[in-house]
Write a protein that binds this DNA or RNA. Structure first.
Length: 417
RNA sequence: GGGGGAGUGUCCCGAGUGGCAAAGGGGGCGGACUGUAAAUCCGCUGGCUUACGCCUUCGUAGGUUCGAGUCCUACCUCCCCCA
């Protein structure tokens, strides 16, 4: 299939993970003859990683599966600076407290994909705050800064696009690249790390690290990037009305996560199966042969397998079953997202508007009114036409709940307690 | 230090130079059609309100005016030219 001889690069290439590789032949040979150590950095800009980060986590997963050692590097230090890559505007400067909270939220997800420990193939969790926070400015400039050419740095996309668009790039951010380059060298010293991976927008930063390594006397370092996770129409994946598709269960429930993937475009299903699940390629090949409405089978498998990766098999199966009952049987699945209200709220009658706001299906009463006008709001599967309608005990189904729906797909159960 | 330009609906881009809840896109949400798809078509896309209407919104703070996104002053931020 692929031209690579090492299992690592062969797997990555055949599943569609490779966008660019530096010196592919040399890296291929190295990965074939030895266990290599590779890292990916994750900045702590949010309390959870999102589905767009999932692909690079899978890079670490396959690295470990093919016998090598992954390092998940938390950007406790670099987040204090802020990566300008791919950003139009300066990032808000985060407080150390927020960074630390974010770090805690992000760190947990890796245990689901990697085996950490002290053994030779076990994954390592590192934090660049450990070496960046204590740097001495003048020493750093003399030891590291002298190897960087401003002329060259200005030519990198992350810098150039800002300058071209006449958007400001602060000196703080300008230094991000240098710190990331330094991380690579530091990880080489500490762990013998020779490969840095990341999404394609990280190429410039990674290559800077390789250059720095050469000047500071590390062994040859390598870069490997994967494409950004996009839909076939080119849009970045992971944005919905409700916000990003986070990986932490308390921010996006397993059911919603399942639903997100279930609604994948036809054109993306096979690609996402390769990228976001660990299903063998020949099985994916069978699913790829499905046509027309049968593609829905592949989408369900994609949703379940990918959900199982991060939320566990049981949660994935439960989400699949909830969806099956709701969409295929039209039945009321008790496992739909549920919000509880005080039973007494129903006695005087709870306005539909308030109920939908409470359920989080709409953002305001006005929003609810508009949706009612557009025919998008249903109670117990009956379209609501009167915005003054009140919900009372008489609307309770035999199961003791009231089903609120926005559109065909989004349902919430209102449960009096 | 001097001169010139810019900041618009908190998702984004962008028209608007005295009557504006503010054109037009994109995105998003809803409806129709389908397969919980895509494409297409239609509607919606500041808050409160049954409604008349009220409130908040065009970098920030003042001012002129019956009325300010629009004019004036100061300030903030960014860009360009000169020193």
């Amino acid at each position: 299939m692929s031209a690579y001889k090492s299992e690592l690069l062969d797997v990555l290439a055949s599943r569609g993970f490779i966008h660019q590789v530096s010196e592919p032949e040399a890296l291929d040979a190295l990965a074939r003859s030895s266990k290599i150590t590779a890292y990916i950095g994750f900045d702590c800009t949010a309390p959870s990683l999102h589905i767009g980060n999932l692909m690079v986590i899978m890079l670490l997963y396959w690295l470990q599966q093919t016998g090598h050692r992954p390092i998940a590097l938390m950007g406790g230090g670099t987040t204090r600076v802020g990566d300008p890559s791919g950003k139009d505007e300066t990032r808000r400067i985060l407080t150390d407290q927020i960074i630390n909270e974010n770090l805690r939220g992000i760190r947990a997800v890796f245990a689901k994909f990697l085996k950490f420990g002290e053994g030779p193939g076990d994954a390592v969790m590192a934090n660049n705050a450990d070496w960046l926070n204590s740097l001495n400015y003048i020493d750093f400039l003399r030891d590291v800064g002298r190897h960087f050419s401003i002329n060259r740095m200005l030519s990198f996309d992350s810098v150039k696009t800002r300058l071209d668009r006449e958007q400001e790039l602060s000196f703080l951010e300008f230094n991000y690249m240098i710190l990331q380059a330094y991380d690579f060298v530091e990880l080489n010293k500490r762990y013998g790390c020779v490969l840095q991976m990341g999404a394609s927008d990280q190429w410039g930063n990674i290559v800077s690290g390789i250059d720095l390594g050469r000047r500071m006397g590390t062994p040859q370092l390598y870069a490997l990037t994967c494409p950004l996770l996009t839909t076939s129409s080119g849009a970045k994946m992971g944005k919905t009305a409700a916000g990003a598709v986070w990986l932490n269960a308390d921010m996006v429930s397993p059911y919603d996560y399942w639903q997100y993937l279930r609604n994948t475009d036809d054109a993306d299903v096979v690609r996402l199966l390769k990228l976001l699940t660990v299903m063998p390629l020949d099985e994916i090949g069978r699913l790829a042969a499905l046509k027309g409405q049968d593609i829905n089978e592949a989408k369900k498998i994609l949703a379940t397998e990918a959900t199982a990766m991060i939320h566990g098999r049981a949660a994935a199966d439960a989400a699949a079953e909830t969806a099956r009952r709701t969409f295929e049987e039209g039945a009321l699945a008790q496992t739909l997202p549920t919000i509880e209200i005080a039973r007494t709220e129903l006695d005087p009658g709870l306005s539909v508007l308030a109920a939908f706001v409470k359920a989080g299906l709409v953002t305001s009463n006005g929003d609810a009114r508009r949706q009612i006008k557009g025919g998008g709001i249903r109670v117990n599967d009956v379209a609501v036409t009167d915005e003054k309608m009140a919900l009372t005990q008489s609307q309770l189904t035999p199961e003791g709940v009231i089903k609120l729906s926005l559109g065909r797909k989004r349902h919430v159960l209102l449960k009096p307690v």
